[in-house]
Nucleic acid binder design. Structure first.
Lengths: 187, 187
DNA sequence: GATTAATAACCGTACGTTCGGTAAAATATA
DNA sequence: TATATTTTACCGAACGTACGGTTATTAATC
């Protein structure tokens, strides 16, 4: 009996979970297989390029997620800036499970793996920054001020996730997200 | 001819360089040996507990560094708060080579390795925060406000290092450090 | 019936770790 | 002071295991 096909989304979700938690070098094919619901050999059927192609596929999936749930929502002219920000804050909360999960862009930013995925990581970060820059402009800031705020947002998310992980408490992440809301709303 | 003893500091510097760049899982004993100037077997003479003991030794070394160059300088009552901040900013710049090097606390904060080193990572981060909290108090902030600023400093450093790595530019780190200086001085 | 998707079994390599042994330095003995 | 002993520091080679990756085969789908 051949099991039914494992669908792309479930597959990528499982693969991403391992990569974000263990990084590129730390993720073994056995773990990737176990978490994706496929056997090792089946992963090679789906991704003939092996671990690197798996990681690129996950990064593409993440990039699309950011485009859809961060960038497009932040630039949706049918909503007010405040509504957009609220939506996106919610998306960010669920993406990182309130500060308990790591960011895959960080996990793949080790010196040893960043060389392999430099472009993909850069594009995803840039899209994130572009979205928040657009939001800032719609809030009435100059383009420069808006971009500076956008960098602060990305830095605060990434930094607070690390501090949360290091201190073993989600409080820094939660506080950082609240500070981001204030940063835009109190103007 | 037996080679001369590799001194502790050189040894730990070499080991740290690998661990901060590649993380725990990503650092092989061969690389650690190569970077430290010892053979693999000699590393086991120095650190009978293997890779884990090596990493703990490096974390202890880092903790002492933070105590000496961050905490003690930030609490040195013989200098003005502004002088202390300037000193420590310089230390931070050299620690991360202006944004080009990663933070070992981040590198060991992967889900897979954080379990092994939770206490050591936490202590180092806490010492960092305590130092900047003391500085904020001496700048005239309330204890709560000072602690909030201290968290912001640590988060900004960690976050900006990731964004710098991801975007392939040290500009975010440099800007974040400047923003930290402003945060204290413009009050 | 051809193609697609899955698997079990397997491969060579690199991993972390251990072992046996040697050279230098330090200490004790004469 | 000269010799014997112990300790320290290093290394080459090998261990069993787990790695990333491959092949041959089977079963469901188009």
């Amino acid at each position: 009996m051949r099991p039914p096909k494992v669908e792309d989304q479930a597959l990528l979700d499982g693969l991403m979970a391992v990569l974000r938690a263990k990084g590129y070098e730390g993720s073994s094919l056995n773990e990737l297989a176990g978490s994706s619901g496929l056997q090792k050999a089946s992963l090679y059927h789906r991704f003939p390029g092996g671990k690197k192609e798996i990681t690129l596929a996950v990064l593409h999936y993440v990039h699309e997620w950011i485009r859809k749930y961060i960038y497009e929502r932040l630039t949706d002219q049918s909503l007010s800036p405040a509504e957009r920000l609220g939506d996106v804050i919610q998306s960010i909360h669920s993406l990182y499970q309130g500060g308990e999960k790591s960011c895959i862009l960080k996990a793949l930013s080790m010196d040893s793996s960043v060389e392999l995925f430099r472009e993909e990581i850069k594009e995803s970060m840039q899209r994130w920054i572009d979205g928040f820059t657009a939001l800032g402009v719609d809030y009435g800031f100059t383009r420069d001020a808006a971009q500076e705020k956008a960098f602060q947002v990305l830095i605060a998310i990434q930094g607070s996730l690390i501090v949360s992980k290091g201190l073993g408490s989600t409080a820094p992440f939660v506080a950082a997200v609240e500070a981001i809301e204030k940063m835009y709303r109190e103007v």
